[in-house]
Design a protein around this nucleic acid. Structure first.
Lengths: 236, 236
DNA sequence: TAGTGGTCTAGACCACTAG
DNA sequence: TAGTGGTCTAGACCACTAG
């Protein structure tokens, strides 16, 4: 099991040990951690790599490894709406607007790597956070991969249903974020004045072979939602 | 030098070898690459880690490593406006609107970790792509770190100036993306109808010690700009 | 100049895939 | 069941920091 790997156990132990330390506090050296935990230095570095990627520590060659001042955010990861809302301390809920089998059309077909005349199941939902509207979500799935989906209970987590019932495991996603002017229908559903700005996220979900299995467009209320992430300079 | 490391050379060699291969083409096994290039398997894995992070390959345990179908995008990295535009095949340019030393104020002070009464240099620029407006950019820097900046030539790359003249190296940044309704001034400068939506990016630039050195707000035209990136599922 | 993280080696066994 | 990527070891030298 992945959670049992030594580097993963060590990562959790280091994170727990860091709790409460002020920013820029030095961690023990890699060689010290290695000796103290009875693992090789490579394993220590694996654990530190994960902590660095998560924004918990930073490393300076020749100087040491330090507790990062977590001002804002961590790196982005693929989350469901429910996970995302809970991370923001909001209670997620859902109102099903439509679930039907339709022709894919050009754009969706291209995103999913199927033919425009192939069928897709389209699930439209209004997503709520603490009881009031947060976003409009339109999911498209190849009908051939999800037989009978439109007849399922779609008020809960769609991702869980896809994983458990249809063995579709979405491992990563390509996202395109844009600002849009909401149309009348969208404004009304989201409970904001017509013509307000909205944040639109187009997502193509990929399985572990990087093949597209899901195409989703989500439009968020601009006044309630933002996207936070850390970027690093890559070497040129 | 970093560019001379074996894993970096190998990364480039593998990328070159992959060029033109259709998606899902298997790469040689790690052991084969190791033998063929005369490096250890760990070094091979370092090179493949980088290719995986960049979205060039994907790995399936027990099965192999494969050329990724690069449908849309790579992972986000910290880029200057000029780099960003060139990556989109657009020619960047700049019009200086203002450069002055002002009181930080509460929000900027908090972002930069200074006192609200401390001074900051504020540089406002309209950024153009292929000759027409793309975004409005407002950069704030602690005045103590950049003496004389307001008097410099600010029509070119501010990042280059900060690096070369002031030894401020911005290694990473925390960003918050939101959709906003443009006000009249913003619409006029960007050349779009009043009330249009805009994409606002608030960025705090950090040095290699994760200390904030720059606070920037950029407002992009919604019709010309989007943000693309790949997210992966993290283990729970 | 002592001590740090960065790179690298040559092994070994484990978890998983796919015929 | 053969072969793959994932994890792990016990070393070694290099690049860099900071007193």
């Amino acid at each position: 099991m992945a959670g049992q790997a030594k580097h993963e156990e060590l990562r959790q132990a280091l994170l727990a040990a860091m709790a409460g330390s002020p920013p820029h506090t030095p961690l023990p050296t890699e060689r010290e951690i290695s000796a103290r935990h009875g693992v090789s230095r490579n394993t220590v570095r694996q654990a530190l790599d994960a902590l660095e990627a998560a924004g918990s520590v930073y490393r300076v060659q020749g100087a040491g490894t330090f507790v990062a001042p977590s001002v804002v955010s961590k790196s982005l990861s693929l989350t469901s709406f429910s996970e995302d809302m809970r991370a923001r301390d909001l209670e997620p809920a859902s109102r099903l607007l439509a679930a039907q089998t339709v022709r894919a059309g050009r754009r969706i077909a291209e995103q999913l790597g199927i033919a425009p005349d192939d069928e897709v199941v389209r699930v439209s939902r209004l997503r709520l956070a603490d009881g009031s509207p947060m976003c409009l979500e339109n999911v498209h799935l190849p009908a051939a991969r999800v037989p009978g989906l439109a007849e399922e209970d779609l008020s809960g987590s769609l991702y869980d249903l896809l994983t458990e019932r249809y063995r579709l495991d979405i491992r990563s996603a390509e996202q395109i974020v844009r600002a849009v002017d909401l149309d009348e229908t969208e404004s009304a559903l989201l409970g904001v004045p017509p013509g307000s700005a909205g944040l639109r996220v187009r997502r193509v979900g990929l399985d572990r072979r990087e093949s597209p299995v899901e195409a989703t467009t989500t439009i968020y209320r601009a006044d309630r939602y933002d996207i936070r992430f850390t970027v690093r300079r890559s070497q040129p």
